[in-house]
């Protein structure tokens, strides 16, 4: 086990969205723009790192029968911190993301990693794992947010920086920033991922 491969694993093989298929709700709900996606992913990353660290540090003291309530309380604590910090320092983003910030509590990625990884591994590797999963989540949200924002508004401008402006050349499809666009984008991306996996399996056996 080396730290770098553990980190990369969270982005590729155990990617929260396409590998483990966890945390679908925020992936779909906050990706109407790149900016929202980044804000959400950073909040989740912080909670992931904090909860993985705490759960891993306490793993020898937690009795198996009450581990779930303890994990949830630990996660809820970190979510409350994120909630208050974002409300104070980034009020615009906070009102955009709305109910989904406190809902990081029930994001399956966070509790899934606490269950599957932090309870079995040391503090250092748990933090690495959290960073890997968090970064994987961030990249997915940027990708989906980018596709939807581009097709839906023809302009990608996270945090006031215009990356692409194609509004002169195309008619944006409003559906892409509404809910059907979210379902469609992730369904198409998942089909591509499945296709790649099946091709790989057919080749390698």
């Amino acid at each position: 086990m080396n730290p770098l491969s553990e980190f990369i694993r969270g982005i590729t093989k155990d990617n929260p969205t396409f590998g483990l298929v966890l945390g679908l709700c925020p992936t779909l709900a906050v990706t109407s723009s790149v900016e929202n996606g980044i804000g959400m992913a950073l909040g989740t990353l912080f909670v992931l790192v904090g909860s993985n660290m705490m759960v891993s540090a306490m793993r020898k003291q937690i009795p198996a029968s009450v581990r779930l309530p303890i994990e949830i309380i630990v996660i809820a604590t970190f979510v409350t911190i994120v909630d208050m910090v974002m409300e104070a320092f980034t009020p615009d983003l906070y009102s955009q993301l709305g109910v989904f910030i406190p809902l990081i509590v029930v994001n399956c990625i966070v509790i899934g990693r606490a269950e599957a990884y932090a309870l079995k591994n040391g503090v250092f590797y748990s933090i690495i794992d959290a960073f890997g999963e968090g970064t994987g989540f961030l990249l997915v949200l940027i990708l989906i947010g980018g596709i939807r924002e581009f097709l839906g508004t023809a302009i990608i401008d996270p945090f006031g920086v215009t990356v692409i402006d194609a509004s002169a050349y195309m008619n944006p499809a409003m559906y892409m920033v509404l809910s059907p666009g979210a379902f469609l984008t992730i369904a198409v991306l998942m089909t591509i991922v499945n296709y790649r996996k099946q091709q790989k399996a057919a080749k390698g056996g």
Binding site: P69, I72, A76, T77, V79, T80, D83, P102, V105
Partner: peptide
């Protein structure tokens, strides 16, 4: 500010 923690415990 404790609402998230309290609600999740109630639901559980």
């Amino acid at each position: 500010f404790l609402r998230t923690i309290v609600f999740i415990v109630v639901i559980a």
